[in-house]
Amino acid sequence: MIIAIVAVLVPLTLAVLSLRVLKEYERGVAFRLGRLREPLGPGVRVLLPGLDKLVRIDLRVVTLTIPPQEVITRDNVPARVNAVVLFRVVDPVRSVMSVENHAVATSQIAQTTLRSVVGRADLDTLLAHRADLNEDLAKSIASMTEPWGVKVEVVEIKDVEIPEAMQRAMAREAEAERERRAKVINARGELQASAQLRDAAKTLSESPASLQLRYLQTLLELGADHNSTVVFPLPIDIIGPFLDAVRGHTTSPAPSQVPPSVNGTSPVTHAQRTHDDHQS
């Protein structure tokens, strides 16, 4: 009885141990006595216990986070840069035969490539033109991982950290740039306004009645305000004659400051005669 039971259990155990189930997103790389076999697709696969060895390869996209790297840009600015790499295995056999661990190898290649590419760019390019750097990183990493059967899908620079002193300098630069733009816009507005005023002056000079209407409209606007002080502007053509009369009066010769004579004699002669009469 015991022999019968053993004879039944042993084949069943061997059968269970020889069965492998591969999922739809997995592929199997099998070795029989150290020799490579054809890759195994998804489903139930039979392997000989003790003779065959199976390596499971995941074909899904892997998200790899590159830790922050200390880099110095081309314009000698220190920065800390980290990135994200998305890759997947496209050739299971080469991912096993060409490299020991394709995930670790891809991570190390991504780190060294990130430091190299960022070191060739200046700070402005790193902050404003990340798309070009991402494309350059993806091409560089993909060229090195392609022999391993690994395809790099996306490389994105995640964050850039720069010193606080550089951040304050950039903030001052941005503020000065905004002030410059504001002054330029204000100057352009003044130029356009002066051109419009010149055209309006030409139009008003052609029609004196329109100038009088503008004057009356200004008085109406001033009268609408409830103020204690009212300013009445007067056109120069109205007060012009009065100004000319005042100028002519101020330019006429002033009368002599010597007082008039008494009885046809000068004041000095009259005073001298009076003094001689008193002495006599």
Rank of each mutant, 00 (worst) to 15 (best):
A182P: 00
L211E: 08
A131K: 15
H249Y: 05
L191F: 06
Q212L: 14
L12F: 11
E135S: 15
I239Y: 11
A105I: 06
S194C: 02
E156C: 07
I66Q: 01
Y25K: 06
G34A: 06
S18G: 15
Q111E: 14
I109C: 02
A224Q: 14
E146F: 03
V150I: 04
T63R: 14
L17V: 08
V93I: 07
A271K: 11
A271L: 13
E175R: 11
A105Y: 01
V85N: 00
R35N: 07
P253H: 00
S140Y: 05
V184Q: 11
R20S: 06
A79I: 02
D159K: 13
T13S: 15
V246D: 08
Q272G: 09
D91H: 04
G264Q: 07
V85Q: 00
V8C: 15
L222R: 15
L191V: 04
A224C: 10
A110T: 05
V10I: 13
S256V: 04
V62M: 06
R45Q: 03
T251F: 01
E175T: 06
E146I: 05
N186M: 08
P42E: 00
G119R: 05
A182L: 06
T229I: 14
E146D: 12
V96A: 01
G50V: 05
S205M: 11
T13P: 02
A182N: 01
D159P: 03
V152F: 03
R45K: 07
G248A: 06
V44H: 04
D91T: 03
R56M: 05
L17Y: 09
P92D: 03
A193I: 05
D52L: 01
A209S: 13
G189H: 07
A174Q: 12
P163K: 13
K202F: 05
R168L: 13
S228P: 08
P208M: 11
V246K: 12
L126G: 05
E100K: 14
G264L: 05
V184P: 02
I57T: 02
P163C: 14
W148A: 00
A105P: 03
F31A: 04
I141S: 01
L33A: 09
R178D: 04
V81M: 03
V160I: 15
L33Q: 07
P235G: 14
V90D: 04
H129Q: 14
E190M: 07
N227P: 07
V231K: 13
S140N: 08
L19I: 14
V246P: 01
S207H: 13
A271D: 09
L40W: 00
E175K: 08
V90R: 07
S207K: 14
L54T: 00
N101A: 11
R181N: 09
A103V: 10
R27M: 03
R180P: 03
V71Y: 09
E26I: 02
